[in-house]
Design a binder for these strands. Structure first.
Length: 450
RNA sequence: GACCCUAUGGUCUAGCGGUUAGGACACCUCCCUUUCACGGAGGUAGCCCGGGUUCGAUUCCCGGUAGGGUCGCCA
């Protein structure tokens, strides 16, 4: 029998990075085994559910490329879905729950108490055979010793998580429950419920949680807890996926950067680590840089335009070849696309803003004649390409009897306003003679006053 | 409070009854270089503590400590 796994998020309005990794591990397991990945929306809490909240989840998974074989097609709970084990929204499965509860009631496995319906939980310890953690004998806590029974249906008629989660897994034919370790203790309840329904429980695999960089638990409010924040910061989904794979799972052969195909090939439950992992933003950034460096030009352009738009820069004011050439000089130099407007904004602005510290250092009077000479050299160039520009700058430096750096630094500042950026010769070529001469002229003017 | 899980450099990890404890990120130094980044060469830094078992424990067992989780008419 092919495995059937599921990701069953609650639409809270955001997708937790840990939830994204849970989805990823489920997806990887399904793809590795040739099984089925089901997406189910646990929207039993009507008060805080909305179609928008579901869309956040769907869009997050889509962004990561985690396609589901069964589940909703839109955020609309009553809308279309794919798969024959639906509905895939819990809000649409009320009859299923009622029927199951009545069965438990009639068999004396559940009872009414103060308007709620409670489950008669066993008092014996429950053995959880976990594929990641190993065998766990879950004993009763002191409070459970007093009353091990738990509520299945609230007095307002709403079924609770433990009940619906088990019923859905049962009815959707889920064979492997891969979820966060925060559910490990509760698994005893779930196993007892499966027994009560007269079916064997699925296999369980509890994966460790993701903690903040400082080791504290990652909650909703923490920086980087929301998957959307990575999209907004201009991360590439393949970088996020790759990084997430490495958190709590290891290919065991010292590999870091791996393609999704390789990961699917290698991924399996036994290699999942048992301890929590801290989120290392720096390492994610490094992977991001690795992927950003080899990005296809068209995709790079698309993401860059998006980043510039977000920053309030309209690149459409410039010819497409100019924008693409500009981006080409930035390739491999930046990591997240959120950095791009600051890094390459000088290409798209009419007036460069200078770094004040650098102005003090480079826009000094003795540089004025030097830049003027360079300006003249540029003006006289027959061809305004990077190679000619480089040659001209070096010749000018030689004629002036200074190192090339003496010319390079003030020129870069004049053209970009900053001390670092793309290759100077290439950015000069892209900016074009007119802009370059204009910017040098302006800088020369400032040096005169300084 | 009870119950459960976990413990290798700062971080992610490999590994193992005998290893010079390996890799990656970060950090430091140097090289390359028009800046930055990349790349190259080095470097600092680790088996939580205490008992056992054993000829020998980072590795196995127990205890402690620490971190995390759960015990809801939240999911």
């Amino acid at each position: 029998m092919k495995p059937r796994v599921r990701f069953a998020p609650s639409p809270t309005g955001y997708l937790h990075i840990g939830g994204a990794r849970t989805a990823l591990f489920n997806w990887l397991f399904a793809r590795h085994t040739g099984g089925t990945f089901v997406l189910r929306i646990e929207d039993t809490d009507a008060a805080r559910n909305s179609q928008e909240a579901v869309d956040v989840i769907l869009n997050g998974l889509r962004w990561l490329g985690l396609d589901w074989d069964e589940g909703p097609l839109t955020g609309d709970a009553t809308g279309p879905s794919k798969g024959d084990r639906g509905p895939y929204f819990q809000s649409q499965r009320k009859e299923n729950y009622q029927r199951r509860v009545e069965a438990l009631l009639s068999r004396g496995l559940a009872y009414e108490h103060e308007g709620a319906i409670k489950f008669k939980m066993q008092r014996e310890p429950v053995l959880i055979k976990d594929l990641v953690v190993g065998d766990v004998l879950r004993k009763l806590t002191d409070r459970e010793e007093i009353d091990p029974d738990f509520v299945l249906v609230r007095s307002d008629g709403q079924p609770v998580f433990h009940l619906v989660n088990v019923i859905d897994d049962l009815e959707m034919g889920i064979t492997h429950v891969i979820r966060g370790e925060d559910h490990l203790s509760n698994t005893a309840k779930h196993i007892a419920l499966f027994q009560a329904f007269g079916v064997p429980a699925p296999h369980y695999a509890h994966i460790p949680l993701i903690l903040n960089g400082d080791g504290s638990k990652m909650s909703k409010r923490d920086q980087g807890a929301s998957l959307t924040s990575y999209l907004d910061t201009g991360f590439l989904p393949e970088a996020v996926i790759n990084y997430l794979c490495l958190l709590g799972w290891s290919p065991k052969d010292n590999r870091e950067k791996m393609s999704l195909a390789e990961t699917i090939e290698l991924f399996d439950l036994p290699q999942i680590l048992r301890h929590n992992a801290r989120f290392d933003y720096e390492k994610l950034l490094w992977l991001q840089g690795e992927y950003a460096r080899e990005l296809a030009p068209d995709r790079c352009y698309e993401l860059a335009v998006h980043a510039f738009t977000r920053a309030g820069v309209d690149t459409n004011r410039h010819p497409l070849p100019y924008v693409k050439a500009a981006l080409d000089t930035c390739k491999g130099k930046f990591k997240t696309f959120a950095e791009l407007p600051a890094y390459a904004g000088f290409y798209f602005t009419d007036t460069v803003e200078y770094d004040p510290e650098a102005v003090k250092k480079d826009f000094v009077p003795e540089n004025k004649p030097r830049l003027e000479k360079l300006r003249d050299a540029f003006t006289a160039l027959p061809a305004f390409d990077a190679a000619s520009i480089e040659a001209a700058l070096k010749e000018t430096a030689k004629a002036l009897g200074v190192k090339v750096g003496v010319l390079v630094h003030p020129t870069r500042l004049a053209l970009t306003g900053k001390t670092s950026g793309p290759s100077l010769y290439h950015l000069i070529e892209v900016l074009g003679r007119e802009r370059v001469l204009g910017r040098i002229e302006r800088a020369v003017g400032i040096m005169a006053i300084t």
